[in-house]
Simulated assay, not measured.
Amino acid sequence: MLDQSYYQKADEIIAFYGKKPSSLIPVMQDIQGVYRYLPGELLTYIAKEIGVKEAKAYSVATFYENFSFEQKGKYVIKVCDGTACHVRKSAAILDAFMKELGLSDKKHTTDDMLFTVETVSCLGACGLAPTCTVNDEVHPNMTPEKVVGLITELRGEC
Rank of each mutant, 00 (worst) to 15 (best):
V76T: 12
S59C: 04
F69D: 12
H108Q: 12
C158T: 13
V138N: 05
I77M: 10
V60G: 08
P21Q: 03
S104N: 04
K106D: 15
R155C: 05
V120H: 08
I14D: 00
T116W: 05
H108I: 12
P130R: 10
K74Q: 14
L42V: 02
D81R: 15
M28I: 03
L101G: 07
A84H: 11
C80I: 05
L38W: 02
G51C: 09
E153D: 14
N66F: 15
K48Y: 08
T143Y: 11
C126G: 05
V138Q: 08
K53P: 04
M98S: 05
K19P: 06
L43G: 01
Q32K: 02
K53G: 12
L154M: 03
P26Q: 06
M1A: 08
A125L: 08
A84R: 10
Q32I: 03
Y75G: 03
V117T: 14
K20L: 04
A91E: 13
L2T: 00
I25C: 02
E70S: 13
M98T: 09
D81P: 07
K20P: 07
K99T: 14
Y35V: 02
I14P: 00
Y45H: 04
G40M: 12
I93V: 15
K74M: 12
E54G: 05
I50V: 04
I50A: 03
A10M: 00
K99I: 10
T131G: 08
L24Q: 02
F69K: 11
G40K: 15
T83I: 10
L150D: 09
Y64Q: 13
G127W: 06
H139V: 14
D136V: 10
K20W: 04
P39D: 01
P130I: 09
E41N: 03
L114G: 08
D3A: 09
K106C: 03
I14Q: 00
H86R: 15
C158N: 12
V117C: 13
K20V: 08
C80E: 11
C158Q: 13
